[in-house]
Design a protein around this nucleic acid. Structure first.
Lengths: 113, 113
DNA sequence: TTCATATATTCTAATATTTGAATATATGAA
DNA sequence: TTCATATATTCAAATATTAGAATATATGAA
């Protein structure tokens, strides 16, 4: 229940184009900051800020190779998330029965009106 | 690509405890606003605002039964999202090889330092 | 009609997020 | 040492999100 809420927090943190792009890249393996910068069109400090936010949330982590920080994915949840972000879906779910023109129908719940 | 970005927008919109709770409830079938209010502990106008935001994004829709607005899920993507939000995951992914104490290792990328 | 119920909208204050600019730090090379 | 590279941090401005209060609207019942 608490875990459920923290997953929503994580979702919120991650729901950003640059962050998703970073995570998508990391899902293919370790990347250092400069390599991440190369395919993102944002400033160095901004890349760093995104990495920092993701790291503080435990979504990613890094190890060091000389001057390079080698970032990698830590949260398994992210892999599934990336997958469904890229998946194709039908335009919409089959709806409940209601008139397609007037959009009127019967409420199946117990509330009486 | 454009679709990919709009899915991230949708993710951002949806990454909120009340909205996830609403969508989770709707994933079990049609609900009218009052029934949604009953299990959420937020004001009527706030429920309405969340529903309005979700509807404008095409995530949900409604039909009418008298004074009731019967909301239902429209976006198939949301069902998969709800599923992974509730799924259990191992604490972390198997990391790349690096010293667990000093956190030092070799960068596998082509960048030379 | 009039009323009560169901729901939406508008406005506003509080708060959070995002970004760029400037600056700081750490490390390997010379 | 000194320097250049790789990366982080801090600050401030711009912007977006959230929630409550007040009010509006639509509908069925009386």
């Amino acid at each position: 229940m608490n875990d459920y809420l923290s997953r929503i927090e994580e979702l919120k943190l991650v729901a950003h184009p640059a962050r998703i792009a970073i995570l998508d890249e990391l899902s293919n393996g370790v990347k250092c900051v400069s390599d991440i910068q190369d395919f993102l069109e944002i400033s160095q400090s901004n890349v760093s800020q995104h990495l920092s936010a993701l790291r503080h949330a435990g979504v990613i982590d890094f190890y060091i190779d000389g001057r390079l920080r080698c970032y990698y994915l830590r949260q398994p949840f992210i892999l599934d998330l990336l997958e469904i972000i890229k998946k194709d879906y039908p335009a919409e779910l089959p709806g409940p029965e209601c008139c397609p023109v007037t959009k009127k129908g019967k409420y199946p719940g117990k509330r009486k009106n």
